[in-house]
Amino acid sequence: MFLSYSFTLWGLWLILLTVVVQSLVAAVAHRKQSQYIPGKVDENLSHDSFVFRSHRTFHNSLENLAIFVLPIMLAIFAGAEPQTLTVIVWVYAIARIIHMALYYAIATEKNPSPRSYFYMIGLLATLAAYIVVALELLSRGA
Results as ranks from 00 to 15, higher is better:
I15F: 06
E81Y: 04
L135T: 04
F118Q: 03
V41L: 11
T8M: 09
L16P: 00
F50S: 14
M73Q: 03
L137V: 12
T18E: 12
V28D: 07
G11C: 07
I98E: 10
R96Q: 08
W90F: 07
I15K: 02
G11F: 05
P71Y: 01
K40F: 10
A142W: 14
S139W: 03
I88V: 15
M1G: 13
L9E: 04
H47M: 03
P82S: 04
I72S: 07
Y36A: 04
D48W: 00
M120I: 15
L138H: 03
K40L: 15
P114F: 02
L138M: 08
T84G: 06
S46Q: 12
F2M: 14
L3P: 00
A93M: 11
V20T: 11
L16F: 10
L137P: 01
I98W: 09
V51L: 08
L24K: 03
I98L: 08
K40Q: 15
A26F: 12
P112S: 07
H55V: 02
V19E: 07
P112M: 01
P114M: 01
V91T: 14
L127V: 11
L65C: 04
R53Y: 06
F2G: 13
V19D: 02
H55S: 13
K40Y: 13
T57G: 14
V133W: 03
L9G: 12
S4Q: 15
G39P: 11
A142N: 09
T84A: 14
H59K: 08
V89Y: 05
A101Q: 07
